[in-house]
């Protein structure tokens, strides 16, 4: 037992050091969000955020500092944790939330969103997120070994990777999709069968409320996809009810006609992301001009 406690302590400390020193990759991104992210405009969401929205274009067009905090496979459980970290640093005035139904309000395994938040467990409010997903996390997180569970290879790779600060969190994709579009109109008889996750919905509402209380302009974004398996009905209804502006690619035919903009049916490649971000700027400008903190903005 004593040996295991020593190993636990040693591995926990070593992992902490590796986390802080990682110059690139997801580890660096998570640490940056925890320690420093104080940009005025922050993008949150899944891989569809991190690969689709180019901070450089937003910064040049809107004249504000921008960071893309999107993370592969992440949803509201993680995103709410990111918001709590951002609030500690002040600075954030606008959040673009890339909605992904499976990650943000439909039922799946919420435990998958926690590993990327483990580094921020000490941030006020983040710990209770863990407990709301699984009460046993309160005990599990006492272990240094558990805190690095499944993360050691990534810690190693991220310590060996090149610095990616110049992209402000954006992760470009470079290849081209070779298949056909699978985009279809949403079938209400199918989407009616989806199961909604009460915890995610509660956190999504909390996210909206917190932004409103802190005078942060929240914008929901639905970036381009060619996949038929998305159900945005609930997200759109919630946005309407809570009066959150939505920017959706559905009004722009180019994004579902030109498949060369995609890497796969759910992700734009860099060409598509740059085009989409430029289009997004046009949609964001009037929204930000009317936002609660518009006087502070430079647009």
């Amino acid at each position: 037992m004593a040996i295991m406690m020593m190993v636990d302590l040693a591995v926990g400390m070593a992992a902490g050091l590796l986390r802080q020193r990682a110059p690139g990759g997801v580890t660096h991104k998570a640490e940056y969000i925890r320690q420093r992210a104080d940009e005025e405009l922050v993008i949150v969401g899944s891989s569809r955020a991190s690969h689709h929205i180019v901070p450089r274009i937003l910064r040049d067009s809107l004249g504000v500092s921008v960071y893309n905090a999107g993370m592969d496979g992440m949803g509201i459980v993680y995103n709410y944790g990111v918001l709590l970290q951002l609030l500690r640093h002040g600075g954030v005035r606008t959040v673009i939330y890339e909605l992904t139904p499976w990650n943000d309000y439909l039922t799946d395994d919420n435990g998958q969103y926690l590993p990327n938040l483990r580094n921020a467990y000490g941030v006020p409010g983040v710990d209770s997120l863990f407990w709301s997903v699984d009460p046993s996390e309160r005990i599990k997180m006492m272990s240094g070994l558990y805190r690095v569970n499944s993360m050691l290879p990534r810690l190693g790779f991220d310590n060996l990777s090149a610095a990616t600060d110049t992209l402000w969190g954006y992760e470009p994709l470079w290849s081209r999709y070779a298949g056909a579009s699978r985009l279809q109109e949403e079938d209400p008889s199918v989407s009616g069968k989806y199961e909604y996750d009460p915890l995610k919905i509660d956190l999504l509402k909390k996210f909206i409320r917190t932004c409103r209380e802190r005078n942060i302009q929240l914008v929901f974004s639905v970036s381009p996809y060619l996949d038929r398996n998305y159900s945005y009905r609930y997200g759109m209804a919630l946005a309407e009810k809570e009066r959150v502006p939505v920017v959706t690619f559905r009004s722009e035919p180019q994004f579902f006609e030109d498949i060369s903009l995609y890497q796969d049916p759910s992700h734009l490649n860099n060409t598509g992301a740059e085009l989409y971000t430029r289009w997004l700027v046009g949609k964001l400008k009037p929204i930000l001009a009317d936002s609660p903190g518009a006087g502070r903005d430079t647009i």
Partner: peptide, 19 residues
């Protein structure tokens, strides 16, 4: 023997899928 136990337990906690 004890090294093997510690290594296995450490690997379970660090590399195991604990879901």
């Amino acid at each position: 023997r004890w090294s093997a136990y510690v290594i296995l337990l450490t690997l379970i906690l660090t590399f195991g899928v604990l879901d």
